[in-house]
Write a protein that binds this DNA or RNA. Structure first.
Length: 490
RNA sequence: CGGGGUGUAGCGUAGCCCGGUAUCGCGUCAGCAUGGGGUGCUGGAGGUCGUCGGUUCAAAUCCGGCCACCCCGACCA
């Protein structure tokens, strides 16, 4: 058990906060609510970006970039959109500073007031749709499939590293289509991309579903989501994909001439995932010794730690290791040989465990004599000796095993924490234990809000694969024809 | 934004009630020994006590404003 991290069973939040800092992922900054993402943390985010970007390209999307600032008037063009975001917008009112009269500081120059104030984007629908108006005239211009990687700002009351920060990084896809069907298909396709990414790369099982009206994106007709379960039993929305209907097209008057020569409003979607995925990744797998990273997203997949008393021994080990490095690199394994003599092996072991490196290979004089190496896997902490010459083939296989194993562990956990409940008493008891509760709901916002008020649990989603089933609402006792998923959430 | 808490060396802390410029651990630096799970010993460096103001001969300590962070609530990806 680590002496360097709080125990996650005792204080989950403290454990999370300390882990983020000690594993060198991120830290708080001089600006309230904003974080500094440190190089190691950013390299994980970069791997996520690279993977997702490739998936977006493979599904026909192209990247572009729209401005950080949005004219204030744009936001109010779509009624529910402004209502959803107005409360958390940073506003630019001036464009110049000047020296204060006493010369000791700078002040806002009152002469430099903007005629129209700008908001810092909380999301880019408005500025993008105002642009799409000029890009789209004909059905031949559709579909328009654009993504952007950007930062956004939402002025949150309470922030937590990665999970909710005032500024965060994300990607936002914004597409325009000729028909409703195509837009819905796009919305569902991108949800599928997110689910695949979460499960195959993050090794984090997710439930695909649609949000209730209360939880829907401001300006959307339908919000699809992937929901994951963290180790403390709380749910986390990991990605969303919105069917926007013609709402933004109407708000920004984006019309096209169809094949029959008639003018129609286009159909839109938007979809995004953010640096919040980092928080999800951390909370999905890590333990009291530190991060546990899935090999597919680990910046360093394998670390080799030499154990030596003198330079002569290190030279022997280095020679041996140099025969392995090209083999691993050829198999696409990212490997680091940590031959620093400024830290002890024990320190390195603990440090790479804290950082979540999936596989560690230790090579010492005894190994050199016997032609072996000690291989330790981060997920199970299991250590095993192998013939050194077999490592080139064993390691890639081991990385696949680890990727599978942590996924399996996560899905077993989620399954054990997903239960069906049928009475209000049962609901209130089980919600205390965390996890997803599958229960009947009468479909009204009033009931949803009442349940939230009493239990602190929200409807995470109506799962896409939920079967029609007659029953009685857990709270009101009214008729219901399917179960929905409740949980306390991040 | 409401309620509670915290802020002392890079990090974690003692001291605060009962005023007299600061304790310990980790880290850091030097040397020697060590090296298969966060090495040991010896010596050294490092502090506007969050910040601004007030009380006082004297403030880390008492009082007030502000800032930041943590926990709980409301809001949210």
């Amino acid at each position: 058990m680590s002496k360097f991290l709080p125990n996650k069973e005792e204080d989950y939040s403290l454990w999370y906060n300390e882990l983020v800092k000690k594993a060198d992922l991120a830290e708080n900054s001089a600006v309230r609510g904003c974080m500094v993402i440190k190089p190691y943390g950013f390299s994980i985010w970069e791997k996520m970006q690279q993977t997702l970007d490739l998936m977006f390209k493979e599904t026909g999307h192209v990247n572009a970039y729209f401005p950080l600032f949005i004219p204030k008037s744009f936001l109010s063009k779509e009624a529910s959109h402004v209502e959803g975001f107005a409360k958390e917008c940073a506003v630019v009112t001036h464009y110049r500073l000047k020296n204060s009269p006493d010369g000791k500081s700078v002040i806002v120059d009152p002469e430099a007031k903007l005629e129209e104030e700008l908001i810092v984007r909380p999301t880019s629908e408005t500025v993008i749709w105002s642009t799409y108006k000029t890009w789209i005239q004909s059905y031949r211009d559709l579909p328009l499939l654009v993504n952007q990687w950007a930062n956004v700002v939402r002025w949150e009351m309470r922030t937590r590293l990665f999970l909710r920060t005032t500024e965060f990084l994300w990607q936002e896809g914004h597409t325009a289509h000729a028909t409703k069907g195509q837009a819905i298909e796009e919305t569902e396709k991108m949800l599928e991309v997110y689910a695949t990414f979460a499960e195959e790369f993050m090794a984090m099982p997710v439930i695909k579903g649609v949000k209730t009206a209360n939880e829907r994106f401001a300006g959307a007709e339908e919000t699809y989501c992937i929901e994951a379960l963290m180790q403390d039993g709380k749910a986390l929305q990991a990605g969303t994909s919105h069917f926007l209907g013609q709402n933004f097209a109407k708000a920004f008057d984006v019309q096209f001439t169809n094949k029959e020569g008639r003018l129609e409003h286009v159909w839109g979607t938007s979809w995004g995932v953010s640096t919040r995925l980092m928080g999800a990744l951390i909370m999905a797998h890590s333990d009291n010794d530190g991060l546990v990273l899935p090999p597919k997203l680990a910046p360093i997949q394998v670390v080799i730690v030499p154990i030596f008393k003198n330079e002569e021994q290190l030279n022997l080990i280095t020679q041996k290791v140099n025969t392995l490095l090209p083999l691993l690199k050829k198999s696409g394994v990212s490997v680091k040989f940590d031959d620093r003599d400024t830290q002890t092996p024990g320190f390195k072991f603990a440090d790479y465990e804290l950082k979540g490196v999936p596989v560690r290979i230790a090579v010492g004089p005894r190994d050199i004599e016997q032609g072996t190496a000690e291989v330790a896997r981060r997920d199970t902490k299991e250590k095993k000796s192998y013939a050194f010459d077999d490592l080139g083939t064993i390691i890639p296989k081991l990385l696949e095993d680890i990727q599978e194993n942590i996924y399996k562990k996560a899905i077993d956990f989620r399954n054990s924490k997903t239960i069906a409940v049928n009475t209000w008493d049962e609901f209130m008891t089980k919600i205390e234990e965390g996890g997803f509760l599958s229960a009947h709901w009468d479909g009204t916002s009033e009931t949803e809000e009442k349940i939230k008020e009493l239990s602190k649990a929200t409807i995470r989603c109506i799962p896409l694969d939920s079967k029609a089933e007659l029953g009685k609402c857990i709270y009101s006792g009214k008729e219901s024809n399917q179960r929905v998923l409740f949980a306390r959430a991040y």
